[in-house]
Amino acid sequence: MTTGKPKINKLYAISSQNSKYVFSLPLKNVIKIGKRKYEIKLKHDEKFGTYILWKNRKYPVEVVRSRQNKYEILFNDISYTFTIETPFGYKRLKVLSKQKGKKEKEFIKAPMPGKIVDVLVREGSQVLTGEPVAVLEAMKMQNEIQSPVSGTVIKVSARPNTNVVKDDILVEIKVEA
């Protein structure tokens, strides 16, 4: 059961914006762009830290967070979040999301007028039900705005130090189980 090679011949990396990247296994150190193939290497040295060597150029990279099959990667100063799925897992995910009555997107709105003092998530952040996404200052109190769902943040409209009115959309979340 736990022995031998798993019969997976490809993996899908799905971004927070739902772009799907397919990689055949075993994973090659090569990226294909159109018809051309380019070598890619993950390296580390004292001066630059961890970096990716691509087309003769070094790019800074860091793994910010990983949780089960979700990874937050900071590459060339931009954060990306991916979910890695096997073909079976991906198929199952699509079936689940087609379930009737299932809300795909959640819009978190300001419950009252006030000032956003803190934005706690960014595009791609994973949130769990109850996790705070922003802090709203109103009536001389600071209020945590919590996410009512679990999922991935797909858009952050709230900006720190700006005023909002009731029902202003703060954060958009793609609902996941």
Partner: peptide, 25 residues
């Protein structure tokens, strides 16, 4: 607010996949 060329996300995806493989497979 930001820029990334088309292949940058792909490279990040490759890395995430590589990590997944190293950790799980």
């Amino acid at each position: 607010y930001y820029y990334n060329s088309e292949y940058e996300e792909m490279i990040a995806a490759w890395l995430a996949t590589k990590l997944f493989i190293e950790e799980n497979l």
